[in-house]
Amino acid sequence: MAQRTTEIIVGLFIIAGCAALLVLALQVSGLTPKSPGETYTVYARFNDAGGLTPRGKVSMAGVTVGSIREIDLDKDTFQAVVAMEINAAVDTIPTDSSAIIRTSGLLGEQYIDISVGADETSMKQGDAFYSTQSAMNLERMISNFASGR
């Protein structure tokens, strides 16, 4: 086969590969060309982080406003310290808001829901939530209920 034809076919082959990558990026993973944007980090301490995972979502009133960066154990208090990155645009979270671990659906993945407080000052980089509510443990709840406590 002529070298030229081969070149063209191979070129098409590579283009097909790039097109496939593009399809996977846009159609399958729903990647939109938005930059990660500015964020600031706040912390929350939980007695039980349950099934939270890094990259899990953080939401307010059902709207995603950030994501979990990492989950560590505080060696002094034996609490879970969750660092989350909140979109810089959402800069009016009252300082007395609380962070609650919730489950989407009955068996879905866990996420952090911010329950809004009433204070007039807002949270800034490095602040921690004043009150938190740990993961709801279905098993413990049922046993509590059964033993009547």
Binding site: L21, Q27, V28, S29, G30
Partner: peptide, 19 residues
């Protein structure tokens, strides 16, 4: 079908790792 796919597939984690 598509919405579920798009909400769970991460470009870097899934597509790029596959590559």
């Amino acid at each position: 079908f598509w919405a579920n796919m798009q909400s769970s597939v991460e470009f870097v984690d899934d597509v790029i790792n596959g590559v």
